[in-house]
Design a protein around this nucleic acid. Structure first.
Length: 893
RNA sequence: GGGCGAAUAGCUCAGCUGGGAGAGCAUCGGCCUUACAAGCCGAGGGUCACAGGUUCGAGCCCUGUUUCGCCCACCA
């Protein structure tokens, strides 16, 4: 057989450089065309299912999506390759307020608003927008390699999902778990809608704190209140003090005269008031402050609204009616000052509730809204988590979860916008009764009137998202998909929507399916910039995943995110790291190119079968290392330790496979002995196949590309079996022997470098080793050692004299000697040896002290003590050799 | 105010039930050695934030302190 290999162009083989963009595009098209992502629905296989956290239909892929979907894709590909009946169900969220805002902005640029169009036309326009632009993020996810079953893509406003929403609403209403009521809610005066508590973000603002004099009726004194919102005083219906505050005890039961309006309001006592803050007196505005609202209920105070839905002072504001909030504030302050009521104004920094969409300051407002009584639902979710039916990873989140669930409040689900699921409730004009029904009613079931008016409000977007794990599988129909894939296997999401979404899915899933929506929840970190700052457009520190993909390739980005995805820590992404992992992809590519050069020489080549064990030490070693790596990667993926999977792969490919194995077997591949050559090729092919399969879930594109070029007829790698360790290839002896050989080779290389030998220069070396077994081993691999250290001569002896002008090293109990006449930097060597001696002595002293300690030898496990003894012996041996070396250097100098 | 988390090499981070401090990048030195200079070979670099405690033994467990980050929250 002709063993020589031409390095020239290899038609049909792997290109000299890896062209990631064309490769990615090509494979994505093929995978999609051949339906490789589709769930097989095979009943005899174990089911593995994930529902995607539906990105907003308005979204564009950001780095958080990239991370989230990379991790999901890894698990999905991993399980698909294991033969599981795997479904990754994709879709998008209609994102009520966000989407409505986008379309309203579009309208504004045409000089129109939604009221010009009217409700139906506006909604039509949103659907139009969705048709044109709504596919953006889906296409970007595909580009990321996300192997979702795209035929099953869902949208929260689809007919089926809308049906599920109505069904859930009606059932909850009939069970008394949905009610309509007056309550103080978070009102966004810009979006014109109520917001749930968790849609309010608190931002630090610099404001002024105004101290205002409120006279006591009858001229018997005054109380001073402090406020940041003086304009709301027009809606004050009491002044509150702490019941035990002695400063005010003489005023209990008194009436206060409200400045400017002259209205008379009571002074009440409530322990909510903090005595230490300000003057200890608080103005109470039940209609525009959550706490004042609660206090108002306790004391039966009237609720006086002075602001309308747009933040304009209303008729209750008397002369101030019609002014907007901020100009009214200026006016009020001026008037108070003029009339001597304003004592002082001081700068004040405090947290203000803002709309999470538009960051307008929230105006707490009393209005009629729909609510879900969440307590009974929350209890089921808590129980499921406590009983371990849902596991949360990493487990630090349990505490936060319980804490939040314990303090959960009723969920305000109505939103005063147009885009979303309109509440399926009607009021009869004739009898005023409320009708809640899945199907639009034609006549009132109570009085038969046909004059019915539907609720204007739509539901909170999270209401439909909460149903996602079962609504996407066809609920309320009893579908095969539901039976097969519910409960889903795992939910992977970012912790910032643990409450918005995850907790609510638990509640709804348990309530309507009587079963958890997912068995595991894996919460990954948020991606930040390399300084730990949140990425934001205004800071300009955004890393755009699409940029990364364009510059470094999808696989490089995916590998980077995986390598960074350690549990329980924020991810500080650094673009340089993406470039670093691009080099890793390139390394793999080149290793494959090298392999292919040799493998393509033999058209009949086959990988080793499981029972087949090669003879060559390096082959046995790499198979054993591959086994270990497979176990590590499997264990890591089974426990969501993504970064460990990545690092095991990296270590294996770069250091074990490329640095040692490929270099080691080069002579074999060029050997004249055909048995040696074919064993090398077969093992090489075997290991390369396993490596590609192992890496495929993380870096699908490059692995699929290389795979397709390997010899033999090949189906998709993405559908090939995921590697399993085969015990017949575990080889502790080979690992032990290779360890010594690698150390010896590194030792000799260090000597070479220390003498500043040219890498091409040949050396003559001697190995002294009293241990016959080891000496024989080293002798057996003489040729390999010589090849990898560029030695022209290598001799072995049990012991021998080390010449003064020789490089010397000690590995284990093996002495390496390289004559280097005139090449030794005596001073440098001496310095190094002296430093080494210091370290050795220090270490030996420490261990000897330990061994002299009866407590240690008595209490520590025997194995630990024995190990320390061994270590002490080794240190002494090294110290002796170090001493000899120093003497030789001194003799030279 | 409550809760959670972090502090390990110059930088970014691993270090999972306590038993010889690791990686990548960066730095320094030498190299185009027939897959890869997008590379190879080698080297240097750490009081594991601080102070106590438990233990034969602590980066790891306990207590406290400092600094930083995040989440929740009803001090106007």
């Amino acid at each position: 057989m002709e063993a020589s290999v031409q390095q020239s162009e290899n038609p049909g083989g792997l290109s000299k450089t890896y062209e990631f963009s064309t490769v990615e595009e090509r494979w994505l098209a093929k995978w999609l065309k051949d339906d490789t992502f589709a769930a097989a629905m095979a009943a005899d296989k174990a089911a593995f299912s994930i529902v995607i956290p539906p990105p907003n239909v308005t979204g564009v892929l950001h780095i958080g999506h990239a991370l989230n979907n990379t991790l999901q894709d890894i698990l999905v590909r991993y399980h698909r390759m294991q033969g599981d009946n795997t479904l990754w169900a994709p879709g998008t969220d209609h994102a009520g307020i966000a989407t409505q805002n986008v379309v309203e902005r579009q309208l504004a640029s045409e000089g129109k608003n939604r009221h010009d169009l009217g409700r139906d036309a506006f909604i039509e326009r949103v659907w139009q927008w969705r048709k044109e632009k709504g596919g953006t993020i889906v296409n970007q996810l595909k580009r990321l390699g996300a192997s979702c079953d795209w035929e099953r893509e869902r949208f929260t406003m689809d007919d089926g999902l809308s049906q599920a929403v109505r069904e859930v609403f009606v059932r909850l209403y009939n069970e008394g778990l949905i009610y309509k009521g007056h309550y103080i809610i978070n009102w966004c005066p810009r979006c014109h809608t109520a917001l749930a508590d968790d849609e309010v973000e608190h931002e630090e603002r610099d404001d002024l704190l105004y101290h205002i004099r409120y006279p006591v009726s009858g001229g018997t004194g005054e109380v001073v209140v402090a406020t940041t919102r003086p304009e709301t005083m027009l809606g004050d219906t009491a002044v509150a003090v702490h019941p035990e505050d002695e400063r005010y005890s003489h005023l209990h039961g008194a009436m206060i005269e409200l400045p400017l309006s002259g209205r008379s309001i009571p002074l009440i006592c409530d322990s909510y008031v903090e005595r230490e803050f300000g003057t200890g007196a608080l103005k109470v505005t039940p209609a525009h402050d959550r706490n004042d609202y609660e206090m108002g209920l306790r004391h039966d105070l009237p609720q006086l609204k002075v602001l309308d839905d747009s933040g304009i002072m209303n008729e209750n504001a008397g002369p101030y009616a019609g002014q907007d909030q901020s100009s009214c504030r200026r006016q009020i302050v001026a008037d108070l000052k003029a009339q001597g009521f304003l004592i002082k104004e001081e700068p004040y920094r405090h947290a203000v509730g803002c709309c999470y969409r538009c960051h307008t300051v929230i105006d707490p407002n009393v209005s009629e809204q729909w609510f879900v009584s969440v307590r009974p639902l929350a209890d089921k979710a808590v129980a499921a988590v406590q009983e371990g039916r849902i596991k949360i990873y990493p487990d630090t989140w349990y505490k936060t979860f319980y804490n939040w669930m314990d303090n959960i409040r009723d969920w305000c689900i109505s939103r005063q916008i147009w885009w979303g699921h309109r509440i399926p409730a009607w009021t009869c004009r004739a009898c005023s009764k409320l009708i809640v029904a899945v199907d639009d009613p034609d006549i009132c079931p109570f009085c038969g009137s046909s004059s019915l008016v539907q609720e204007e409000d739509v539901l909170d977007t999270w209401f439909s998202s909460a149903l996602w794990p079962f609504s996407t599988l066809g609920w309320p129909e009893k579908t095969k998909e539901l039976a097969t894939f519910y409960p889903t296997s795992v939910l992977i999401t970012s912790f910032d929507i643990l409450f918005f979404w995850v907790a609510r899915m638990m509640m709804m899933g348990l309530h309507f399916m009587d079963e958890v929506p997912f068995k595991d929840v894996y919460l990954h970190a948020l991606v930040r910039d390399k300084f730990g700052k949140k990425m934001s457009k205004s800071t300009g520190n955004v890393i755009d995943p699409l940029d990364m993909i364009a510059q470094y390739g999808t696989d490089a980005l995916r590998f980077t995110l995986t390598a960074f995805a350690a549990q329980g820590r924020e991810i500080r992404l650094d673009e340089e790291r993406v470039d670093g992992y691009r080099r890793f992809i390139n390394k793999l590519w080149n290793a494959a190119r090298f392999a292919e050069m040799h493998l393509s020489q033999d058209s009949g080549i086959k990988p080793l079968t499981e029972g087949e064990r090669p003879q060559g030490l390096a082959h046995r070693w790499i198979l054993s290392r591959a086994n270990a790596t497979i176990r590590e990667v499997r264990a890591a993926l089974d426990h969501y330790n993504f970064n460990e999977a990545a690092s095991s792969c990296y270590q294996f490919v770069w250091h074990f496979f490329c640095d040692w194995y490929l270099e080691w077997i080069k002579p074999d591949l060029f050997s004249k002995d055909t048995a040696v050559v074919s064993e090398a090729r077969a093992t090489l092919l075997t290991v390369l196949e396993q490596t590609l399969a192992l890496l495929h879930p993380i870096i699908p594109f490059v692995t699929e590309e290389i795979w397709s070029h390997l010899p033999g007829e090949r189906a998709y790698l993405m559908l090939a079996p995921f590697p399993e360790p085969s015990s017949s290839w575990d080889d502790a002896q080979a690992e032990e022997e290779m360890k010594l050989l690698m150390e010896v080779i590194s030792g000799l290389r260090t000597i070479r470098t220390g003498a500043e030998l040219h890498p091409g220069a040949q050396i003559k070396a001697s190995i002294f080793c009293a241990n016959e077994e080891k000496r024989a081993l080293l002798h057996r691999y003489q040729a390999d050692i010589m090849a990898l250290t560029r030695a022209s001569e290598l001799t072995f002896a049990a012991e021998g004299k080390v010449p003064n002008d020789a490089g010397h090293a000690l590995v284990q109990d093996v002495e390496l000697v390289v004559p280097l006449k005139g090449l030794i930097d005596v001073a440098g060597e001496l310095e190094k040896l002296t430093r080494e001696r210091g370290k050795l002595q220090q270490e030996l002293t420490r261990i000897n002290a330990k061994l002299a300690n009866k407590q240690f030898t008595g209490k520590a496990p025997a194995a630990v003590v024995a190990k320390e003894r061994e270590k002490a012996q080794e240190l002494e041996a090294r110290l002796a050799k170090n001493q000899e070396s120093i003497q030789r250097m001194q003799a030279l100098g």
